[in-house]
Design a binder for these strands. Sequence first.
DNA 1: CTGTTAGCGCGTTCAT
DNA 2: ATGAACGCGCTAACAG
Lengths: 362, 362
Amino acid sequence: VKTVGSGKTIHYRKKKTHSSSSSKPARLRDVAREAGVSVATVSLVLSRAEGCERISKPTQDRVVDAAERLDYHTHCLARGLRLQHSMQVGLVIPNIFHPYMPPLIRGVGDVVRSNGYNLILLDMSTSDAGEAEECVSTLRGGGIDGLIIQGMADEFGPSLKNLPVVYIDEYRVAPVVRFDAEKAGYELTQHLIHEGHRNIGFIGSDVQRDTFVMRQRGYEKALTDAGIERNADFMCEVSVNVEGGIRAAQWITSFEQPPSAVVVCTDAIALGLLPSLHRLGVRIPLDIAVASIDDVELAALTMPPLTCIHVPAYEIGSCAAKMLLRILRGTQLNHEVNIVPTPLIIRESSRQVNQDSGKEGI
Amino acid sequence: VKTVGSGKTIHYRKKKTHSSSSSKPARLRDVAREAGVSVATVSLVLSRAEGCERISKPTQDRVVDAAERLDYHTHCLARGLRLQHSMQVGLVIPNIFHPYMPPLIRGVGDVVRSNGYNLILLDMSTSDAGEAEECVSTLRGGGIDGLIIQGMADEFGPSLKNLPVVYIDEYRVAPVVRFDAEKAGYELTQHLIHEGHRNIGFIGSDVQRDTFVMRQRGYEKALTDAGIERNADFMCEVSVNVEGGIRAAQWITSFEQPPSAVVVCTDAIALGLLPSLHRLGVRIPLDIAVASIDDVELAALTMPPLTCIHVPAYEIGSCAAKMLLRILRGTQLNHEVNIVPTPLIIRESSRQVNQDSGKEGI
DNA sequence: CTGTTAGCGCGTTCAT
DNA sequence: ATGAACGCGCTAACAG
C-alpha cells in the first residue's frame, strides 16, 4: 500500500474485477498478472516483436501466451501519449466525388498503412473554409503526426505550424508533388493544333486553384506560340463535376460558329460533356474535337474514347505519402518539388481521320 | 518539490524553456502559468465551451486569452486516454474504386465529423484477408470508438468483440443498414419482362458477397414467378469493375443467339459493358436491353442512359454513421435492420420504343 | 534478467 | 471560486 502526498487514495473505479475473462479489455497489468511478471517485462516482450533480448525465452513464452489468452491489444492512445506520436496521418481533399480521387486516396493509403500508419480522411467537400482549418486544428494536438493536402493550400494558414505537411498539386508551397499542369494544357492544345484546328476553346474550372490556372495558362501559351489569336469568347468556366460538363455542352451549342476543338481542364467535366454533346447532336470529333486532363479510368471508355493527358493519381498519392514518411523519420525536405510525368494519350475524340472503333480500351 | 517512492526524480526532458514562444506546442500547464491560474481551472474553462459555471468571468477571460496567445490545442491522445474514447470511427470498405463508394464515404464522413468524430478510412482493396482483421485489431485498443463495415462482414470474426459495429449491405449480421438487393434484382428483371423480354441474362460478380448473391436470387425469382425457365448459359460472373464489363461484353457477343436483355449486378460493371457493346456493334436497347443496380452519377450519362435501381449511397452511409453514433451514446440496437428504399429509374437502355434522345440527365 | 516507478497531458475529485 | 494531486495505459530509465 503506497502513500503519496496528503496520504489519501481516491478510487475512480470501485469495481476491481480480478477475473481474467472480464468484459473489459485486458491491460498490460492484466497480462503481467496472468504471466506472473511485471508490466515492464510484458511491455518489453510485446513491443519489440521477436527482437527482444534481455528476457529469457521461457518468460517470453509465458508473456506471449498470457497476452494471447487475454486477447490483449496495446492501447493506441496510451502508447501514443507515451511515445509522442499517434501513428496517424491526415489526408485533406476538396472533393471525393472527383474520379481523380479514389486512386489518389488509395495511393496514400497503401503507403501509409504498410508503414503502420492509419489514414484519417478529411473530405472537405461539404465544409466551408473555416471548418477545414478548424478540423485540422483539433487534430494538431497529437491527433496526427503529419498531413497531406491536395489542392487546398490556401485554406490553411498558420494553423499548420510545426506540423509535417506534404502538398499535392500546389504551386506556391513545398514540399509538394504535382504534375506539370501548364505543360499538360500546352501539349493538349498543341496536339489539337497539329490536328489542324485553329479555333480551339477552353473549358475551365470555376474554382481558382493553382492547378487549374496553370492548365489554362498552358492552353493560352500554346495558342500564342502557334501564332493563333486567343478568342475570349471560346473560354468558359464551369463547376468541376459532371453537371459542369453538361453546362459546357450547352455553352458550346450556343455558338453560331463554335470552336472546332476544345480543351477541357479535367475529366470530371469531360465525362459530362461528351454524352451531353452527343445528345445535342454534336458529333465528336467530326463537329468538335475534345481533349482533357486526368485520364481517369472511364476516359478510355467514353464514346468516343477521350484524348487525355494521363495524370498518374495513384503514383502521386503514394509519392506524397512516401515524402511525408521521410519527414516523419526526420529527413528535412522543406523545398522538395516532385513532378511526375504525364504522357499524352491520343484517342478518337481528337483524331480527324482514323475512325475505326474497337481498338481502344478493349 | 515533491518526493515519491524511493525519493528519486528522473528528468526525461532536460530543457525546460519557460519562454511562451517556444517551438514546442503549448500544454495545459503553460496556459495555466500564462493566465496565473491552475491547470484545473484552465481545463474547466476550455473543455466546457461557453457553458462553464463555477469560474468567475474575469478568470475565464484570462484563460481564454492565454490559450489564444499560446496557440493552445488540446492533446487528443491525452484527452482520449483520460476520457477513454478516441473520438474516431473507422470505415472499412473493400474497394474504393467502385463508384458507389465516394458518396457512401461522404455520407459517413459528414455525419461523424459534424458530431466531432474523425473518420479513419480502411480501404482493403489491396489487402489480403488477414491484413484487414489485423489492421482492425490494432485499432481496437483505444484507436477507434466504433466501426462501420461495408460488404466485408465475413473477413472479421471474433476480433470485433466488444467493439461497436454497424454493417452495411450485409444479411447475416446486425445492426445493419442495407437496401433490399433481392427486390432490386427482382424488379429489374420484372421490368425487362414487362418490356417483352423472355431471354434475359444475368451478369454477376465473381466475388461472393451476400448482396450479390441476393441480387442474383431476385433475378432468378422474377423469372420463376413469370414462368420463364432459367438458362444457366445466360448467366456469367465477372470482376466488379470496368474490366469486368468489358469481359461481359465479349461474353455476350460470343453467343449465336444472345439474350435479348441482361440484368447487370452493379453499375461498375455496366459502365464498362455499355461502351464495349457499342464498339462491338451491338445496339442498345435494340439488340439487347440493359439494366443495372446502383444508379451512380454517371449511369444517367451513359449512351444510352442506363435503367437502374437507384441505391442511395450517401443516405446509406449517413444512416450507418447515425446508427453508430447512437450506439456510442449508449443506445442498444443490436438487432436493428435498416432498409432504405430503392426506386426503379427507367431510362433508354431498356425501353423498346421510346428512342428520343435529349430527355434524360440534361 | 526482471521489477519499480516517473511521467507523457489531460480531466476530475476533493479540499480549501 | 480555485488548487493540488491522482490516474487513464504505456514505455523507458534505472535499481537490484
